[in-house]
Design a protein around this nucleic acid. Structure first.
Length: 950
RNA sequence: GCCCCCGUAGCCCAAUUGGCAGAGGCACACGACUCAAAAUCGUGCAAGUGUGAGUUCGAGUCUCACCGGGGGCACCA
């Protein structure tokens, strides 16, 4: 963009002028608190005006303030929510839109380790830098509501919520969380039985405590967890990739039994699945959550072996009669007991792995599987296993069936053992074929089902009879019900539900996170701190990093950095029974903690008494049956972010929200009523002959080939980033074109949900549009207003009101690309009509400015102001279409013959079908096509077309 | 291997949900302005909808198969 040269008109809308306008209006908004959204209660309420009942709560997934700065892909969703929020504000709604920071986490800590800077310093610096970048884009955020998860006033409440969850249990009878004190009362009153049946009063204090702790929604477990020596911390299942590496840093993870904090998210598994049906979310995200929770209904069945029993989980109890062998995971605790001294009669060669005794075979096989990484196990799907030498009894038919161990059965799912039904399970079929085991059909396969495949579909049960029960003739579902009834009656098993979801490992051995509000007494019993002892502030330490180890050193143990802050760890407190010594918990919470509830703090960010005032929560997030139906769970109105949080953040957040709802703190049962995943902005990148990335902006194209510095380079397509040398910063775009141009371009690139390639050269199109619009209202040379009070022509009015009607619809449906196109179309029409005469009618100029405002707020404010309006347009008005201009007097009909357009005619738009048909048949081209014959059929689509079939 | 989404002018994208394939932008060509160029303005240009079949009076839109691209799950019993 050239500027200041002699030939450029002084008042041309270019980057320099845009920059002035943008700064001026940003200051104005900031000075006037234009985006402050009043609360019903508390310090953010506004006594001077009544609360509008019509509200909208829009939220972006808040960013991590990384130090490396933004590229043009980052603000895409932020602009989208801003446009949506602005439109809704203009039509009169009370709109809550702000943005905070998810500021705890590893990068600040790692930077601190390298430089010795305190993570708080880096974090705060990065937040300022981030804000500088996004403020230039003119977002209508309520600045009073900004929070960062690292603010002590914020994490005090994160700790408080932790305590609420800690002090709760899941009541299966009422199907909700309740305060743990009520559970104690139930035990004390004898309404609930103790685990060993003794009276509550007979239990020692420690025993009572143990019983209570076993019910808490937060508990300490000794179970195997994901230990990443290279990170020096444990991580949650959700943070481990399918390859067994940490999502952050790609470090190997080892399953290791460690004492760790867990959150009982599994108590909510059913509700987390079932309530997905109530949410307006992308189907893709819902299915990912269903998948992760992995609910399957089936039965547990016990197969006797000597005086032991192997318990299996199966989703196909209807095929029980077809179970011809069993398989245990190699790590199954019964394996040692089941391993026979010698190979029994009937053991086939294939079963023994060539070993002299079962013990040798089992030992060799276990050694082999333990050496295989998860990755190896995935790559070689070949079924392996060995016979234990023992036989179990199939409870249905009394058959003795061999018991194997094999690594295709996983210890971590179900009971770690399966009843193998080779006829009706693909994996069992493969194994049975390889190990020469019998295959017995118990569900009739349809004709033509290949003999070398298991039949897993529906069908009629066969071969399934014993002296008590016959399943024969039943369909799969009925057979399941019947056999479960029989199993329960005979005590062989019971119907049950399994989940893939595991409890949430909640502790990290890092520094930069929320400390636990927990201390330990002399006996090592964890004691929740009372509310008045909050916040537990993160202490200063010399070393911010946990001890990290060789990434492959599975034997290492976590050593959290807080453990070294001895002055902080060892503390004397009066917890009601006089001052005593305690030790603080040295873990910190995972980064997900703050994002589990930040929407609630946006609502009431300054509340010192409560994490959120119920009245404010009710207003902004409460269920609204009148608008959203009787099953509305409530939640904020629009949540926009990337699909990468489909499982982690969105599942954890729903879980916390439900606990807080159950405990009576929240009226909403879900945090996010509507979720929208924006697409990603991607970019081309170029590598030279050595495979090294070259700066993408310096690459030129010729004849479909790409060149850098005279050399041909190879084009790649993918993420935008520094390492690919294809990053473009929003600041650059604001410098070159102005923020409004940038905003308009990003919105016009395509649907918000789509991923699309960045093209700097295309941005000029958006810029030219704003220039033309500016020029219609302001004289480029003098800066004088060039509008008239002339009446609009009929065609002006028609196009204007059509545009108003469809732009309103587009804004409401997040279709900003088409809204933009329609504004350009209208602008082109007005330019053509009034661009070269003296002035533009005010009746066109004003609605155009108002309709542009959601996407380009600065230029719109400036023009609105110049048009003589003293007040901001942020709160409207927004043009309303006049119905009378939306209908045309006449309609042009295409006339088709056999689906091909042969002619056109114009008829009155209120003409009846019969008249239209008659007119069409009278058309001379059509009459010629008919050549005197009768049409077979004539289809008249009112307002659309006529099709004559001959 | 299983499941889901997407293929429309050279490129990014529209198409009232089964009714005339084109709204908008980029690029390109020509013209205006200019000594010239850039910027700006104006005019113009283009595909028959990945391929093949089917349903229908009529298919970009629905069905099936295949090709290409993206994503999710991956021994979950």
């Amino acid at each position: 963009m050239t500027d200041g040269s002699d030939t450029t008109p002084a008042q041309r809308y270019n980057a320099a002028l845009a920059g002035q306008i943008e700064r001026r209006w940003q200051d104005y908004w900031s000075d006037h608190g234009t985006y402050h959204a009043p609360n019903p209660a508390g310090p953010l309420s506004d006594e001077s005006a009544p609360m509008p009942s019509d509200k909208l709560f829009v939220q972006d997934m808040f960013p991590y303030p990384s130090g490396s700065g933004l590229h043009v892909g980052h603000p895409l969703g932020f602009i989208g929510t801003d446009v949506f929020a602005r439109y809704n504000r203009m039509i009169g709604r009370n709109v809550l839109h702000t943005m905070g920071f998810d500021a705890f986490g590893l990068p600040a800590e790692q930077y601190a380790v390298q430089t010795g800077t305190h993570p708080r310093t880096t974090t705060e610096h990065n937040i300022e830098r981030y804000l500088d970048q996004i403020r230039r884009l003119g977002f209508g955020h309520d600045e009073r509501r900004r929070i960062a998860t690292t603010d002590i006033e914020f994490y005090k409440w994160t700790q408080w919520i932790f305590l609420q969850i800690f002090n709760s249990y899941y009541d299966d009878r009422e199907n909700k969380a309740r305060p743990i004190a009520e559970l104690e009362k139930q035990f004390a009153a004898g309404e609930r039985e103790t685990p060993d049946g003794r009276a509550w009063s007979e239990l020692s204090a420690a025993e009572q405590r143990k019983v209570i702790d076993d019910h808490r929604l937060v508990y300490i477990s000794e179970a195997p967890v994901n230990w990443a020596p290279g990170l020096g911390t444990v991580v949650a299942n959700e943070e481990v990739t399918a390859e067994g590496l940490t999502e952050r840093g790609n470090f190997p993870v080892f399953r290791k039994p460690l004492r760790q904090w867990m959150m009982r998210i599994t108590a909510y598994a059913d509700r987390l699945v079932d309530d997905l049906a109530l949410l307006d979310w992308p189907e893709k995200v819902k299915s990912m959550q269903r998948n992760w929770i992995g609910r399957s209904r089936g039965a547990n069945v016990r197969f006797p072996v000597g005086d032991e029993a192997i318990e299996v989980f199966t989703t196909r109890p209807d095929t029980l009669f077809g179970s011809t062998y069993m398989v245990l995971a190699p790590e199954h605790p019964l394996v040692d007991k089941l391993t026979a001294d010698a190979w029994p009669e009937g053991a086939k060669d294939a079963w023994t792995g060539g070993a002299a005794t079962p013990a040798e075979a089992v030992e060799a096989y276990r050694k082999e599987t333990s050496r295989k990484s998860d990755l190896d196990r995935q790559e070689t799907r070949e079924k392996t296993g060995v016979f234990t030498g023992s036989f179990a009894t199939n409870p249905a038919n009394g058959e003795f069936i061999p018991v194997f161990i094999a690594d295709y059965v996983l210890m971590g799912y179900g009971t770690g053992a399966v009843m193998a039904v080779p006829a009706h399970d693909e994996r069992d079929f493969e194994f049975a074929t390889k190990f020469e085991l019998p295959i017995l059909q118990t569900i009739e396969a349809p004709d033509g089902h290949p003999a070398d495949e298991a039949y897993t579909g529906d069908g009629t049960a066969i071969n399934s009879t014993n002296e008590d029960i016959s399943l024969n003739g039943l369909g799969v579902d009925d057979a399941k019900k019947a056999i479960i009834g029989w199993l329960e009656e005979k005590g062989h098993g019971e119907g049950t539900v399994q989940y893939k979801l595991r409890d949430w490992l909640f502790a990290r051995q890092r520094y930069w996170g929320e400390p636990f509000p927990i201390v330990y007494d002399e006996d090592g019993t964890p004691i929740p701190l009372p509310e008045d002892q909050l916040p537990v502030v993160l202490p200063d330490v010399d070393e911010y990093s946990p001890k990290t180890f060789d990434p492959d050193d599975a034997e290492s143990e976590p050593e959290p950095p807080l453990a070294k802050a001895t002055d902080w760890v060892e503390v004397t407190l009066d917890l009601g029974d006089g001052p005593k010594k305690y030790r603080r918990d040295t873990n910190v919470m995972p980064q997900w903690a703050g994002s589990c509830w930040y929407q609630l703090r946006y609502i009431d960010p300054t509340n010192g008494e409560k994490f959120v005032d119920p009245e404010n929560e009710q207003y902004w997030m409460g269920p609204r049956a009148a608008e959203h139906g009787v099953n509305d769970p409530g939640g904020l109105d629009l949540y926009v972010g990337g699909v990468e949080h489909a499982v982690l953040h969105l599942l954890y957040s729903r879980f916390w929200h439900k606990v807080l709802h159950d405990l009576g703190f929240l009226s909403s049962a879900e945090p996010y009523r509507k979720l929208f995943n924006q697409g990603y902005i991607q970019a081309y990148a170029y590598t030279d002959s050595r495979g090294v990335y070259v700066p993408a902006e310096e690459v030129t194209e010729a004849d479909g080939k790409y060149f850098y510095d005279g050399e041909e380079v190879t084009q790649e397509y993918g993420k935008m980033g520094k390492s690919l040398k294809n990053s473009v910063a929003p600041d650059e775009m604001a410098d070159t074109f102005g923020a409004d141009t940038f905003r308009f371009y990003e919105m016009s690139m395509g649907p918000l949900a789509d991923s699309k390639p960045w093209a700097t050269k295309d941005v000029v199109g958006a810029h030219r549009f704003l220039q033309r619009l500016w020029r219609l209202i302001v004289d480029e040379t003098t800066g004088e207003l060039r509008v008239s009070d002339d009446e609009l022509s009929e065609s002006d009015l028609k196009l204007l009101h059509k545009t108003i009607a469809s732009v309103r619809e587009d804004y409401a449906e997040l279709r900003f690309n088409t809204a933009g196109a329609k504004l350009i179309e209208l602008n082109n029409h007005v330019t053509k009509t009034y661009g070269s005469v003296e002035a533009t009618p005010r009746g066109l100029a004003e609605p155009m400015v108002l309709m542009l405002a959601p996407m380009c707020p600065h230029i719109a404010e400036e023009l609105w102001h110049r048009l003589g309006h003293p007040d901001t347009l942020v709160h409207g008005p927004f043009p309303v279409p006049d119905e009378k201009y939306l209908v045309d007097d006449t309609v042009e009909y295409p006339i088709q013959v056999n689906g091909k357009v042969r002619s056109r005619m114009t008829v009155a738009s209120d003409a009846g079908s019969g008249d239209v048909q008659a007119a069409a048949l009278a058309d001379e081209k059509i009459a010629a096509a008919l050549d005197g014959g009768e049409p077979k059929k004539v289809i008249v689509v009112p307002g659309k077309l006529v099709n004559v079939v001959v």
